[in-house]
Design a protein around this nucleic acid. Structure first.
Lengths: 234, 234
DNA sequence: CATCCTTTTCACAAAAATGTCACAATTAGA
DNA sequence: TCTAATTGTGACATTTTTGTGAAAAGGATG
């Protein structure tokens, strides 16, 4: 934990304070931002190691800021943890397909917060940092919401695209069907989990009409995972 | 909701009943315990997926039971949701401090209860499984749910993987077959204990097709144990 | 309202994982 | 050494999970 710092973005001073204390006791350096725009400035000015972001904020909301960060190449790989209030439970997860790496539900125990921060940091430093989202021959154009294979546009439906994008944002990580429903579908509980299978299938088919690349792998009993073919990065 | 069940601990039968109904309608299996000591017994006997715990109880209080659970390695990661009657801030803090994962304030709506249970279950299954785990030449990638030997992925079935993960999580400790059935199989009582043998065998075979490393040792009359080869640990 | 596109559900096929069994091998103790 | 208990082993049947195609259900657009 040498160079960087953790940026905490929340409009409630009490929460900020509490979080700051927790993290500093765990040995992190912390800076605070009271709103999204300010945070955005700070991030551009001096890139933090991680952003802890309240979802509900006046002005530039957490979800919006996340979207913005993830769209910019320079900040796309910046780890983001979202803080969601317990009353937001029903529509809580919507922010996650914006690209957040994890979320913590308030109220949270200090232990949990720190554990999550460490986990996300570990993940992001060791594993991946792929700002322009690409793997193998497949590249995503996040502005246009399209995917290209060797330059050729792939015929993906909206859901297929979101699914692919989400999986590519978290390579090599297994997601259960219910997690995918949460994060790609937006937390609609009333959808049959098997629906995920069907879309995975379509996605696979559209990704490689002829050859079955095994970029999207099935993990029996667990869910699905995206693994970039070989060398792939940046 | 496959193997496990949710343990509801409350001394008021009416509350118990109400909770049980809610959860069962949501598809969970439920068992009841009228007091803390009884609950403790049940937990040790057959591990639940989650414990719903009344804060105020005669004898072994909720907070005390939580502390006790969190102290034992085997039950430390058991998710606990506390039911608290007051809206007192102190209570919540204490509860979270003791290691509870969340709390619900009475009176609560059935929907909230179920939502909270689901949320905690989801969290507990995904979030905490992140520490890198390695011993000898074998390393687990817990996000990807894979085991690698010298970098090569090992062909483990889901159960084999879980078994290995569990054993590696508690190195050098002997587990009886019934303990393993509890922890790895999810407490399904109707399985022949010998089944464990078979899976241990498969795991061993897949771990080292040629040479029998003796990482997984048999302790006659007692069970099995995982011992890391030599120096190894993270 | 008709039509097109997307998404969900359903039924069945295919594949893989799991539990059980019979029997072989090993161990411990008399 | 012999015997009984315990564990290893391979095969097999069953159950569970996933793949697949097509039809139904929504939803937007004109």
């Amino acid at each position: 934990m040498s160079g960087g710092y953790i940026l905490v973005v929340d409009d409630e001073p009490a929460i900020c304070d509490m979080i700051q204390t927790c993290l500093e006791m765990a040995g992190f350096r912390v800076r605070l931002a009271a709103n999204g725009s300010l945070a955005h400035q700070m991030i551009i000015n001096e890139r933090p190691d991680l952003v802890l972001l309240d979802w509900m904020m006046p002005m530039l909301s957490g979800i919006e800021l996340t979207r913005r960060l993830k769209r910019d190449e320079l900040t796309a790989d910046l780890p983001v943890i979202m803080l969601t209030a317990r009353t937001d439970e029903d529509d809580r997860i919507n922010g996650l397909d914006a690209g957040a790496d994890d979320y913590v539900v308030k109220p949270f125990s200090p232990r949990e917060l720190v554990a999550r921060v460490k986990a996300v940091l570990r993940r992001s430093t060791t594993a991946m940092s792929d700002a322009p989202l690409a793997a193998g021959k497949i590249a995503l154009n996040r502005e246009a919401q399209t995917a290209t294979l060797n330059g050729e546009a792939l015929p993906l439906g909206p859901l297929e695209y979101r699914l692919l994008e989400f999986l590519m944002l978290h390579p090599n990580r297994v997601f259960s069907r219910s997690q995918l429903l949460d994060r790609v579908w937006g937390g609609n509980v009333y959808i049959d989990e098997r629906t995920v299978d069907v879309h995975i299938r379509r996605l696979r088919k559209n990704l490689s009409p002829e050859q079955q690349d095994k970029m999207i792998q099935t993990v029996r009993g667990a869910g699905y995972r995206f693994s970039p073919p070989e060398g792939a990065e940046e």
